[in-house]
Design a protein around this nucleic acid. Structure first.
Lengths: 117, 117
DNA sequence: TCATCATGTGAACATTTATTCATATGTTGA
DNA sequence: TCAACATATGAATAAATGTTCACATGATGA
């Protein structure tokens, strides 16, 4: 049980208790981790980046990334489940686009971090 | 090769080429995915959340999360490698804190997304 | 110096996960 | 209806990853 300099054992226990109280509930933390897990894959990052400004079909994305359409489709399913992309069918093609602006915002913050220093 | 309504094959090829040109380089996309991978684990999310407002020792965090100090230490190493937390040694204890404000910003954007709807 | 406590680390194990392959579904034009 | 194409999906395989365990390292106070 570590203590701060000049902090009694009771004060420390109270500090820990305060932190415990202000932590979001487990479900929220789980959902948050699940969301970031979706961002944590190179293929999905590349897909989201391709969709940054315009909608694209599955085969467009597959060509762009040099990957099998099947692999892209699997990943798009995960992105859609996380509500990061939405899809629209037009004839034989399915067009995907970013679902809301959060993706772009999270991307920007992530870029700021890795570009720092 | 899918096409937009009213878009010729050449126009479509040019569109794809424009996207390819404005995509960040592979290294950046890889680093971005690696960064979000660190956010994509419940334990690490809980750790970052605990450190949101104040620094804590390894055993504080272990107590708070009800986990083995060893497990926490392993995860803190990943967080530090990603420059998301920094550490300070004080006697027997090692105190960890968020390294910069990006963590909080990315957290907030993630929360906005999952809380929507 | 030695015992004790806090933290760090390497190996092993179990679980998760991304891609591939084969195949199914759905759509168009003939 | 049938052939051709785009997309979706299930199973299998290989790779990545989180936790545990045992132990090492580092720091304190006696």
């Amino acid at each position: 049980m570590s203590e701060w300099i000049g902090q009694s054992s009771e004060e420390h226990a109270e500090q820990i208790e305060r932190i415990r109280e202000r932590m979001p509930d487990e479900e929220t933390l789980y959902d948050l981790a699940e969301l970031f897990k979706v961002f944590g894959d190179t293929t999905r990052v590349r897909i989201m980046c391709a969709l940054f400004d315009e909608e694209l079909s599955v085969s467009d994305i597959a060509d762009l990334l040099g990957m099998a359409p099947s692999a892209i489709s699997h990943q798009l399913r995960l992105l859609r489940a996380a509500r990061l992309v939405r899809s629209r069918r037009d004839g034989k093609n399915a067009y995907y686009a970013l679902d809301d602006d959060h993706v772009r915002q999270i991307f920007d913050k992530g870029l700021s971090h890795i570009e720092e220093r």
